[in-house]
Design a binder for these strands. Structure first.
Lengths: 149, 149
DNA sequence: TGGGGGCTTTGACAAAGTCCAAATCTGGAT
DNA sequence: ATCCAGATTTGGACTTTGTCAAAGCCCCCA
């Protein structure tokens, strides 16, 4: 595990306290939302502006240092783990997110039967279901819109 | 192709001019957003409230009459084609959306290697790429956030 | 003809981000 | 160690996409 500041330097990015704290927060809280990252950073630095959080997360994402995932009905989430083609498993009820390795080896399903002339560069897979806690009691902590009446 | 009103009746839903127009709009404009649907409906009925559009789209979705898809960086889109396990191909630049049949038969990739105790009920696949028009000139009509500097 | 229930409308509200201009800081050169 | 240009951070207004809630309307049925 490399140092956050080093990672930034390695990518030619100016090292600021905010960036370091943000990158570190993402590392220690995989799949955190921008808000959650902001909370974490505030507990370290005392304060940070919302815009700085978004700026940093965007810059880090553009440089491939972190990855952004945007499941339906959830704000964007960020993760450290880049470079390997893994997917996500999301709880419909509480939004809990887990990593899952690619079931069929590498770059699965990347052969869409019809390409419609598109230049496809990624196949994004999201598994939807209910996490253990939400299966049990049925006491959903976040009502979702997918319920079949 | 069944009549919109019949479809509503078949599902025990009250038939209103708005609902018929909305369902019809979705049928004739697959992958339209709520706003686009509203536009279509206005050109038929003269006017409709935003809330009615959302109400109808939600009701129709809950009854499985239409399906909602929510790709990253795009408002929700709706489509007529339900019941078959097909996926989507989305242009990173302009958001153009196409249907693609499931590459590997049916319910692909539904065997996540690690299930983390989740009860998985769906594997959602989105292929990302550039559509023919956006590949060519490079004149992106909607700047996206995935560009690698 | 009179009720009811469900739809529709209207308007306020909320979440998640972006835009912009001013103040501040970082990194490299002196 | 100091300075400067350019990049970053801030704060606040603003946008987009939806939802909530109250009130009105319409149609069906007795």
């Amino acid at each position: 595990m490399v140092d956050a500041a080093d990672t930034l330097r390695k990518h030619g990015l100016p090292v600021t306290a905010q960036r370091v704290a943000i990158l570190s927060a993402v590392h220690h809280h995989p799949h955190a939302t921008a808000d959650e990252v902001a909370e974490q950073v505030r507990s370290k630095l005392g304060s940070i502006s919302r815009q700085s959080v978004y700026n940093a997360l965007n810059v880090l994402t553009e440089h491939g240092i972190i990855r952004r995932i945007q499941p339906a009905d959830s704000p964007a989430r960020y993760e450290d783990r880049v470079g390997d083609n893994h997917h996500h498993l999301v709880c419909r009820s509480c939004g809990r997110t887990e990593d899952v390795c690619c079931a069929t080896g590498h770059t699965p399903c990347l052969n869409a039967s019809e390409e419609h002339g598109f230049a496809i560069d990624e196949a994004e897979v999201i598994y939807w279901g209910l996490c253990p806690s939400c299966r049990g009691g049925g006491h959903a902590s976040r009502p979702h819109r997918h319920s079949h009446s």
